[in-house]
């Protein structure tokens, strides 16, 4: 075996004129892939109230609460989404049969106020039972 010393010198030297490998984060941002799993976004009008998202969530980040029937036969729901508990695994979006949840690219979710971690919304919808289907690719 040939022993050398400083065999990485040429390598290091060559990099003097190369662009740096890192980015200066808050000013420069890397582009995220379209598959990135960030903060959830909801389309309440599509929700069917099946509560699969709540059932499948591994970290109890989603709560869907039944608020009783409304006059026009629709059921009122209250959804509470805890961003601080969310793992961003995307299982809810995958399980959702009405595609009312999508994952955005938003990842800067730090807050100094704890209440901002809870996102609530109320909506009413008709409950329609539908077969679960296997979805492919996000």
């Amino acid at each position: 075996m040939v022993r050398t010393i400083g065999s990485m010198f040429p390598e290091a030297f060559r990099h003097l004129w190369k662009k740096r490998a890192t980015v200066l984060y808050p000013f420069e941002k890397l582009e995220l892939t379209y598959r990135y799993r960030g903060k959830l976004e909801f389309f309440d009008e599509r929700c069917k109230g099946c509560k699969v998202c709540e059932e499948d969530c591994p970290s109890f980040a989603m709560e869907i609460k039944d608020e009783g029937k409304e006059q026009d036969g629709k059921t009122k729901f209250r959804r509470i989404y805890h961003t601080d508990r969310c793992l961003f695994c995307g299982q809810c979006a995958e399980s959702c049969m009405s595609e009312s949840i999508i994952l955005t690219k938003e990842f800067e979710l730090a807050e100094s106020d704890k209440e901002k971690f809870t996102i609530e919304s109320t909506y009413s919808t008709e409950i329609i039972a539908k077969e679960r289907e296997v979805k492919e690719d996000g």
Binding site: T33, R35, L87, C89, G90, Q91, V134, G138
Partner: peptide, 28 residues
């Protein structure tokens, strides 16, 4: 980073890929 970039491209995340599910994989 090259390997991590590929993983990010395929799965959406650099670590904790979340690609496996019972019965196969989630991303094509």
């Amino acid at each position: 980073e090259l390997a991590l970039d590929l993983l990010e491209m395929i799965t959406g995340n650099r670590v904790n890929y979340g690609i496996n599910t019972i019965g196969g994989v989630r991303r094509n």
